Amino acid sequence: MERPLYINWIVDEEGITFEDGKPLKCYKLSYENDEKVFDDWALHIRKHYIEDDELIEDSTITGLSIEDYLRKYIIPQKQDKFGPTARSNDISEILFSDLFEFVLNYEVPRCKQYNRSGKNESEHGTDIIAYKFHNEEKTPTKEDELVAIEVKAKLSLKEICGVIQNAAADSTKDEYRVAHTLNYYRKKLRNMGKVEESRYIERFQQKAELPYKISYVGAAISSRPEIENKIIAGIKESDLQLKVNQSIYYVHGADLMNLAHQIYERCTK
């Protein structure tokens, strides 16, 4: 997947800590009203739901324009009963997928939003799977990494503590749930014609035979414009009871729900 232009707006905020002084992996979405970047972002999001060739074919079969087909069948709409929630969840999951792929250099399968049963319905299982091979030729080693990421979004609120606590609590997943997601992704990627990616996922289904490192991430996002004094007041890292292989990532920015609606209204081509 091509690197979207908006990635340049994701700024690593070093020095952000919890109340007890423990560091937090924190990023600010410092965006501008840039039509070109917004359009590119919207197209990037739309391609998670449906590819170009399939969109043209489906539009022709239904007799609808591409814009009408996308609004009716594919893209969550603001006026839909669960449309705003779907928009919030999806754009947040895609943002964290982009963060891990284009900033942190992991490989991230893009299949969760594709061809789902309803445009406002999310799939079950781990929100995001990211992985990294230690060897350039991608032969299995015990240094390979798998990251299971659970996303909690509050785009309409400035709240910090609650969304981070929820992300932390939900990010400790049993291996069965991760295993189920890997199996689902492997089969879905294969059905999408992404055979090579499907084989990469297969490697991480062989943990007993071919061990690797696994970690769990609670990914939180909310509409806090700034972090005052670089401290997440009201919460200590010790409150989260994080395990050794568990960490928290937090993204914030101003008025993110309104931003999400602006982007999604452009997902029509």
Rank of each mutant, 00 (worst) to 15 (best):
L104F: 08
D98P: 09
K72L: 15
E54V: 11
Y106C: 04
S92T: 07
L64W: 08
I94V: 13
D39M: 13
V108R: 00
R46L: 15
S59P: 04
I56E: 06
D40R: 02
L99W: 11
E32G: 00
P76E: 13
I45G: 05
I50M: 01
Y49N: 04
V37W: 09
E54S: 07
W41P: 00
F96N: 00
V37K: 09
L99S: 01
C111F: 09
E93I: 02
G63S: 00
P76C: 09
F100L: 01
K47P: 06
D80S: 05
F102A: 05
K47G: 04
K47V: 12
L43I: 14
E35I: 12
D40T: 03
L104Q: 06
P84R: 03
D90Y: 06
R46K: 04
T60S: 13
E101I: 00
E54C: 08
S59L: 03
I61R: 10
V37P: 07
E101W: 06
E54L: 01
V103K: 15
R110S: 15
D52G: 04
K72F: 13
V108Q: 00
K78I: 11
E54T: 13
D39P: 09
Q79Y: 15
F38E: 13
D40N: 08
H44A: 02
D40A: 01
P76Q: 01
D80R: 07
E57P: 12
L64V: 00
L70M: 07
A42P: 00
F82I: 04
E93N: 02
E57N: 10
L95N: 02
D90N: 15
E101G: 04
Y31I: 09
S59I: 02
F38Y: 13
N33W: 12
F38L: 12
L99H: 04
S92R: 05
V103D: 08
D39H: 05
I61W: 14
D80K: 04
N33M: 14
I75S: 06
F102V: 09
I91N: 08
E93S: 01
I66M: 04
P84L: 10
L95R: 11
S59H: 06
D58Y: 11
I91A: 03
I74T: 07
I74E: 10
G63P: 05
